[in-house]
């Protein structure tokens, strides 16, 4: 099988990788780089569990060919932790009890961080829109939404 060479920056670290052109960005993150925080859910872009930031924009990493991400920068949920400190969104979701089984959580955290970068003080409706592409079957979303709204309200921007 033809291998394809790519350069990828992930959570600030540069990687040179030889990949199978069929590999998705999600597969490279999980299998080649062993970053297991990004989850495989539906594998068709519907559930949002695999959401990462690609050049600072949220994408479903199951729908990106790794070959097509050559030269670009990725941030996964692991990259949101600074000096061992969880991101404010992660802390708030835990504090509000917005985690049950936890499968959707990394994707929801990444989508929420993307929203807060663009709109530091979102209201409830804006949070709902931002995570409309993230399915959660446990929580009913209320506590997640309350957590993200609170992070926005408390941020010092």
């Amino acid at each position: 099988m033809q291998r394809h060479h790519i350069s990828l920056t992930v959570n600030g670290d540069s990687h040179e990788l030889n990949i199978d052109p069929r590999q998705t960005l999600l597969q490279v993150l999980r299998e080649d780089l062993e970053l297991h925080g990004t989850h495989l859910g539906c594998d068709s872009g519907d559930c949002g569990a695999c959401t990462v930031l690609l050049d600072n924009e949220p994408v479903p990493s199951c729908l990106v060919l790794a070959a097509d991400a050559d030269g670009r920068a990725v941030v996964t949920v692991e990259g949101l932790v600074q000096n061992g400190e969880p991101h404010a969104v992660q802390k708030a979701i835990v504090a509000h009890g917005g985690v049950q089984c936890g499968y959707c959580t990394p994707g929801i955290v990444v989508s929420s961080v993307a929203l807060l970068q663009e709109n530091p003080h979102p209201n409830e409706q804006q949070v709902r829109e931002a995570i409309a592409g993230n399915l959660c079957r446990c929580t009913g979303y209320q506590k997640i939404i309350a957590a993200v709204v609170e992070v926005g309200a408390e941020s010092g921007f």
């Binding site: 872009g45 479903p60 729908l63 993307a114 929203l115 592409g133």
Partner: peptide, 9 residues
């Protein structure tokens, strides 16, 4: 259309 992540792509 879709959700934010899909609309990025």
């Amino acid at each position: 259309m879709a959700g934010v992540q899909v609309r990025t792509l």
